[in-house]
Computed example of a mutant assay.
Amino acid sequence: MSGTESVFRETSAEPRTEAVPFSHLSLELGHLYMEDFAEGPSRLRRHFAAVRPWADAARTVLGPPHSGRRPRISTCFLIDDYFSRLSTPAELIPPLLETAAAAGLTIDYLARESGCAGPLRGDSAHRDRADLAECVLHRLVESPPPGSTGFRQPVSRTGWLSNGRRAPAQRTSAALESTGAVWQPPSETGARGHSVFMDVELWSGHEEERTWSCAFLAAVWQLVRLGLLRDKGRAVLTPTPWDDEKFPADWDALPPVLRLNPRAAPFTAYVTCSVLPTRFLPVEHAVRVILDQVQVEAGAFTQVAERCAAEDFSLPAGVVDRTYYVFPPGL
């Protein structure tokens, strides 16, 4: 068939990718469990005293953008209200903010970890949105290891995601021993010299009642801070301004992300830096395995690239390379 064919497409079939504002850096000042808060004010004082010098260093390392303007930096803090709720926002948040301020730190944005799981707030404008964690799960594209035959079940069924080839499952029996079957070790895809293989559990429980893992929710948290998540083209977990001195007694009455500082730079940023206790190191390794296999919506990815180019701000091409960490000793 020759000639030019005209293709007609409904405008509604191409949802517009909503734009979000960007800082240069999103600096996370902590991620604590309810058990940490239960230790009392001294635990918070130790935390922010240890975080302060590293937070200052992270700001300095970023340096000014090529435009010569002052870099836009926003701070955030993530509270775990997903795995346990030993206290209420009214009891927990005020001393948290006061202790941070006493250490010379300002928390611009406060987020709830349950917000990374979903569902998003059930108001009329958002009622048709899916759970945020489910949206990210559907965007996972497993990297097939060399020599893979596709025999392995997909992550959407198993709930496990690896960064390479797992060791083959074999039964130990006299029959197999007689065939000379040899054990094969797991291997990391793209390993440099030796493998550091990791298999990450994304959730536990049945599909109808999943409990998402800390690593998977932390990966969602990073994608939200990087401004790379959309739901049918719309921005997700946009911060809600909060100027009320009183906090509710119920976590579900609190928006997923609060903007506490009205003069704060944007919540989403080109790069992220998280100052975390050392116990989070294996979790964040798992986060990087997950981020390396997430297919980001093209419109969101393009928007970030265009913004950076306009500001002459150098940005790594890979999503995982836009996340940085500091693990202070003794934190």
Rank of each mutant, 00 (worst) to 15 (best):
P256R: 02
P256W: 02
V257K: 03
V257L: 03
L258A: 07
L258S: 04
R259G: 07
R259A: 11
P262R: 04
P262A: 07
R263G: 00
R263P: 00
R263H: 05
A264P: 01
A265V: 02
P266A: 07
P266T: 08
T268E: 11
T268S: 13
A269W: 06
A269G: 12
Y270P: 03
Y270V: 14
Y270W: 08
V271M: 15
T272E: 08
T272I: 08
C273S: 12
C273H: 15
S274K: 12
S274E: 10
V275K: 01
P277K: 06
T278M: 05
R279N: 01
R279C: 04
F280S: 01
F280H: 12
P282M: 03
P282E: 04
V283P: 00
V283C: 10
A286H: 08
V287S: 07
V287F: 02
R288T: 14
V289F: 03
V289W: 06
L291K: 13
L291M: 13
L291V: 14
L291S: 14
D292P: 03
Q293Y: 13
Q293V: 15
Q295C: 14
V296G: 10
E297Y: 03
A298V: 10
A298C: 02
G299T: 05
G299P: 06
G299H: 03
G299L: 05
G299C: 06
A300Y: 09
F301N: 10
F301M: 15
T302N: 09
T302I: 06
V304M: 14
V304N: 09
V304E: 13
A305P: 02
E306G: 00
E306L: 12
E306M: 09
R307V: 11
R307M: 12
E311W: 04
E311Y: 05
D312N: 13
F313T: 10
F313M: 09
